[in-house]
Design a protein around this nucleic acid. Structure first.
Lengths: 138, 138
DNA sequence: CATTTGCACTTGCAATTCGCAAGCAAATAT
DNA sequence: ATATTTGCTTGCGAATTGCAAGTGCAAATG
């Protein structure tokens, strides 16, 4: 696994040290908005992430305390990944990425999600954080 | 210059296709919060970005319409980079990265900026966008 | 007018990281 | 007992990164 080094003490820079690549925030997106929680589910996303990259990013995210890894309730050969509060706090970042992408890039965004975000951003953020929290308890 | 390819039509993914690396958002941060506008100024940031990476990212950002490049008013051998509206719209993303980094990573954040962000996020976003707009006109 | 300085890159190259395919081991399913 | 599912690990060629040095141009200096 790549070791994380801090390039400066600027908050933007330290955030990007953890989240600043093309895959990490997609994993978090899948957990928050698609309710995914297993390795196999993450592999099935439209962006087709490579298996070694996924394994590496999950390990970094666990090490950095954004998610926890536990043996699944139904199968011992499966793991369940859940967001911690630190991980849940990335939801506002992901939401801003959704809004920017939907406005400025050719995308196909979920209309109901877009309506929800535009009618009340912070309410939507809290709703998805709460949904993910409930998943973590189940 | 790297050509940009879209991995999927998800808004998060398309945003990350442009912004998802360790350097791009630092350039935008320097333009928005430090008022930087030249190649030499970007090189002086604490994170010490390599010159070829900077040149590449500036070219991508220009191609993607987040900033414009123009000969400087004072010197013909200098260029001035300014944010477009598309570029200014990344300010909310940067703000969320500031808040997440300041909360969860060991950072040294500007206390007056933090107070400003916590007392009214959207007001602060609009203020820094307006400051950058005024710079672009000057 | 020749020379130096500053600025904005460009080039070369070694090292790291990525992405694809294949392989592997343990737990289930048949 | 055998096959399949699940979650990785490994190997390797290709792409990207990071560092150092070099280039070209304009303005300042002598």
């Amino acid at each position: 696994m790549k070791e994380l080094k801090q390039r400066s003490t600027c908050p933007v820079s330290t955030s990007l040290d953890v989240l600043g690549d093309k895959w990490t925030l997609l994993i978090l997106r899948d957990m928050v908005f698609a309710g995914k929680s297993t390795y196999g589910q993450f592999l099935q996303s439209a962006e087709k992430m490579a298996t070694n990259i996924l394994a590496d990013r999950l390990a970094v995210l666990e090490e950095q305390g954004l998610l926890t890894k536990a043996v699944a309730a139904d199968k011992k050969s499966k793991f369940t990944y859940r967001l911690t509060e630190k991980g849940l706090d990335t939801v506002p970042i992901i939401v801003e990425l959704v809004l920017w992408g939907a406005k400025h890039c050719p995308t196909i965004a979920d209309p109901s999600l877009m309506a929800e975000l535009q009618s009340g951003k912070s309410a939507a953020v809290e709703k998805y954080q709460q949904l993910a929290r409930e998943k973590a308890l189940a």
